[in-house]
């Protein structure tokens, strides 16, 4: 089998997320980073990219425009506000867009659940970190139990893994995560909760999914959840089931922990790692599909 030609990609946004994504792209056998673009040439991410001999630019979206025809996929790791401006430009360029912001321009993509449905989309949105962790579990629970009345997810993350943008936009995080749960678990009532924990050493991300179910089938739920965890592990190696589904106090509860890969971000920041891993899983699937 011949190695496929690598998919030429660019990364917009040189903050912590973008820089961690860069490390993952460079490791991918099917992705080729043609440009690392942002606004601040002296940011640590830019410094790191330069040291890795990746072309960098401080001209942001304009630098992508100048590469017309040379990149086929762009990761946007800027902000929701910026993505709303970037989206039409990228659409006009005809590139596939992987949106890591909560802008919700394109279809929500959770690879373990709907990767195949997203591969033809011009713009996919990676929901939120809590969404990437909880949606597959909620989906598995819904598959195992027809009578799901209500789904709720709680994530606890290390304070230090929540940057200023996350902190000021908690409401958007909650609403986007709830939308994701509603969409994928086909459940009208959902709730998302986020806790920041300042303990040192930093806690690793933990996500719990709880559900109210008319007649829960615990055995089937366990089976489905365990199968789902195995699927996610393929693209998020640090995803672990730490509390298999159980019934307690009239609710079904299951819990996962997400250890990050520690590429650029610290390992405790599983919340940031999982969304990047999901973005890479989508991009690699696009790269493979292009070959066939």
């Amino acid at each position: 089998m011949s190695q496929p030609r690598k998919l030429p990609v660019a990364i917009l946004g040189t903050g912590n997320i973008g820089t961690d994504l860069l490390v993952k792209v460079l490791r991918s056998p099917v992705l080729d980073c043609r440009l690392f673009a942002g606004r601040n040439l002296s940011s640590p991410g830019m410094t790191k990219a330069s040291l890795l001999n990746v072309p960098v630019s401080a001209k942001g979206i304009d630098s992508i425009r100048e590469l017309r025809g040379q990149v086929e996929l762009v990761f946007d790791a800027t902000s929701a506000e910026s993505h709303l401006k970037h989206a039409p430009v990228l659409a006009e360029l005809g590139v596939t867009v992987v949106d890591l912001t909560p802008a919700q321009v394109g279809r929500m993509c959770v690879p373990a659940v709907n990767l195949a449905d997203c591969l033809d989309q011009p713009n996919v949105n990676m929901v939120t970190c809590g969404g990437q962790a909880s949606v597959p579990l909620a989906w598995a629970i819904a598959q195992a139990n027809p009578g799901v009345e209500y789904i709720e997810t709680v994530s606890s993350i290390a304070s230090r893994s929540a940057g200023p943008a996350t902190r000021i936009n908690l409401d958007e995080y909650l609403l986007t995560t709830e939308t994701g749960l509603r969409t994928f678990a086909a459940c009208p009532h959902t709730k998302a909760i986020l806790n920041l924990n300042p303990a040192q050493p930093c806690i690793h991300m933990q996500t719990t999914v709880m559900a109210k179910i008319r007649q829960p089938d615990l055995a089937r739920t366990r089976e489905r959840v365990e199968a789902m965890v195995a699927v996610i592990k393929k693209y998020v190696p640090g995803y672990q089931l730490i509390l298999p589904p159980l019934l307690e106090g009239g609710r079904l509860v299951t819990m996962v922990r997400v250890d990050g890969l520690g590429d650029y971000l610290p390992r405790y920041a599983g919340n940031l790692d999982i969304i990047n891993c999901a973005a890479i899983a989508f991009a690699e699937a696009r790269a493979h599909r292009r070959q066939t």
Partner: peptide
């Protein structure tokens, strides 16, 4: 500024 930013990425 730079070294403090880098320190912020340390785990412990």
């Amino acid at each position: 500024l730079r070294i403090l930013r880098a320190a912020n990425l340390l785990e412990d």
